[in-house]
Amino acid sequence: MTTRLQDVSQAVDELGLDRKNRAAIGRLTASGSVGYATEDADGWMRARVRIVPDQMIWEPSILVLPHGGDAELDVVNDDAGTHAALFPSNGDRQFLPLPSYSRGTARINLDGPGLYWFSSAIGNDQGSGLRGVILVLGDVPDHARLDRPDQPRP
């Protein structure tokens, strides 16, 4: 038995998993675009995330923050359907009802490196593809790191 290995983005495109109701009913989670937040002089990171019409996907579906901290998101629903954004944030998750063709703001705080999810939290929006990732880059503060020589990473 042989298994054909293929580049992920190419395979997702060829299979139609990056479009709604082609190979599958919905879209493969986070198979949309990658976006980068800007870092402003006031210390806030800012980005826009929007729901693409008829696609059940966030754009970007992978939002990159350069480090942990406060971020302000411009949230746009360009879809004819009603959705409801749910963003991770320390303290409590941030909830924003998004009627069709609506726009609002979410302010979030994430305090360390790693992957955090966001979504639309009504219907089966999550299972259909309206689920994205916030990627926080960077390292933990020096005072939190282990006192040891540098170790190999994968």
């Binding site: 954004a85 409590d92 909830f95 924003l96 069709s100 726009r103 302010r107």
Partner: peptide
Amino acid sequence: TTEYVDAGTATNQGEFS
């Protein structure tokens, strides 16, 4: 230009709990 409905500002989900 799309005239968006103002969705306002996201709030703590717990406010709806």
